[in-house]
Amino acid sequence: MKMGMVIDLEKCIGCRSCMVACKQHNAQPPQTWWNRVFTPGSHRHLTPPALGVEFFLPVHCQHCENAPCEKVCPVGATYHAEDGAVLIDYERCIGCRYCMSACPYGVRQFNWEDPEKAHARSEYQEKYHYGYPEDHRHEGRLVYSPLRPKGIVEKCTFCAQYRDKGELPACVRGCPGKARFVGDLDDPDSDVSRLIKSRNAFTLLPEKGTKPTVFYLPPKAKEV
């Protein structure tokens, strides 16, 4: 089993629903976003950089097979789960932020202060809590907690807390265009494997040699 995701850029409408679903479901503190959707080439989202060229790019952890973040982690807090997802053990991370430098995709986020204080600083409504309410352990290790310990690194888990219950990640369920697919890359007949083969799937920064398990399907030219 090797978990993989395919994102069809032809179907992505740039609505950022996946961004919001991800942020809410995973109780991300203010200014922390595991998943980002932008308009490549443009400084303003949803504004085409040129007439007729408009597509959107969602980027979160690429769950690389050759993950630099895992290799640099001095304490093995970042690890590959059996299904191929790259996870962080919230109880082991020492917060050295080496992984944040090593990741070429900029997906790793640090808890610069206590999340409760961050809520107050950003003027969130008092006692307002959102997201999956319980701690979650995957293979015995704490990979999700609604209130993060101060001073640790976090990132996309492919929604470990939902996958372990047989449900899909929040971004997949929250996508109105059904642009996201998850499945087993080892199975040549899975949806993801077939899409990758038939639609010229590509990965981000292939020259870095990280071997992402998140694949993108290129958009067709837009009608003007």
């Binding site: 490549p40 080439g41 950089p49 007729g52 060229v53 597509f55 070429p104 900029g106 290129p218 958009p219």
Partner: peptide, 9 residues
């Protein structure tokens, strides 16, 4: 590091 030359540009 995460930079790209967008399609068509």
């Amino acid at each position: 590091p995460m930079t790209m030359t967008p399609f068509g540009l």
